[in-house]
């Protein structure tokens, strides 16, 4: 396991590259979720006002 993490001495580079990817992709997922959440709330606010 430590050998796997070590990556033949390149562990720092490999894992920071993969970590950065995870971070950016995850940020995109969260941003999309938030946008959907906010849009739904916006719609419901409008519905509430109408009734």
């Amino acid at each position: 396991m430590t050998e796997f993490l070590y990556m033949g001495g390149y562990g720092g580079y490999v894992w920071s590259a993969y970590g950065l990817c995870l971070l950016v992709l995850l940020a995109n997922v969260i941003a999309a979720r938030l946008r959907n959440h906010n849009a739904r709330r916006e719609v419901k606010k409008y519905t509430g006002r109408e009734q």
Binding site: N28, A32, N36, A39, E42, Y46
Partner: peptide
Amino acid sequence: SLLLSRARAEILHRERRTRWVQELAR
């Protein structure tokens, strides 16, 4: 997948006053 998700949010925002969105909400 992310494209569809973002597009859905944008559609809801743009069409928030239309009948079909309000019907979905109700």
